[in-house]
């Protein structure tokens, strides 16, 4: 039974030796752990930037970007090694990966429109703007309306 074959659809199964496998799993576990620790450190850095006297929005954004990239790296290792997608036939990998590209537009459009909704509300709903804008940011906010427009309420 070295060739486990559940059905005639499958003609052979790939096999890795135990030693190779063990090495791969340990390596991946270490990578995942290290990335997670780096993410946690960045999380704490962001926390301390926020606590500081003059939080730099750019720095926070940059660190958040780094965390996002690290997360995608983690996802890659989980999917490729733990879920063995890396060992499948290329076409199979493509049928999984290509549809995920839809997320790009999915995310971009939703976020863009969410942001636009905020700007609309800040323009037309003064109460919303005053009650939710962090204190001290009123003047710094770059989005300004030239003429006062009638508010929602």
């Amino acid at each position: 039974m070295e060739h486990q074959s559940a059905s005639p659809e499958v003609t052979f199964t790939h096999h890795t030796s135990d030693a190779d496998f063990r090495k791969k799993v340990i390596r991946t576990t270490v990578i995942l752990s290290v990335i997670t620790v780096i993410e946690l450190i960045i999380g704490l850095i962001i926390y301390n930037i926020h606590k500081g006297p003059e939080p730099s929005a750019f720095l926070v954004l940059a660190f958040k970007g780094v965390v996002c990239i690290l997360t995608i790296a983690k996802a890659y290792y989980i999917v490729a090694v733990f879920m063995h997608l890396g060992d499948e036939i290329r076409n199979m990998i493509m049928t999984i990966v290509v549809p995920l590209l839809l997320f790009i537009w999915f995310i971009a459009a939703f976020i863009y429109d969410g942001n636009s909704y905020k700007n609309l509300r800040n323009d037309y709903d003064k109460h919303f703007k005053e009650s939710t804008m962090p204190k001290g940011h009123h003047k710094a906010e770059e989005h300004k309306v030239e003429e006062p427009k009638p508010g929602k309420q």
Binding site: I111, G114, Y117, T132, P134
Partner: peptide, 13 residues
């Protein structure tokens, strides 16, 4: 998660 992101981007705080 994207809905969450959309709402988060629609908030000032």
């Amino acid at each position: 998660l994207i809905s969450y992101g959309s709402i988060r981007f629609s908030q000032n705080f």
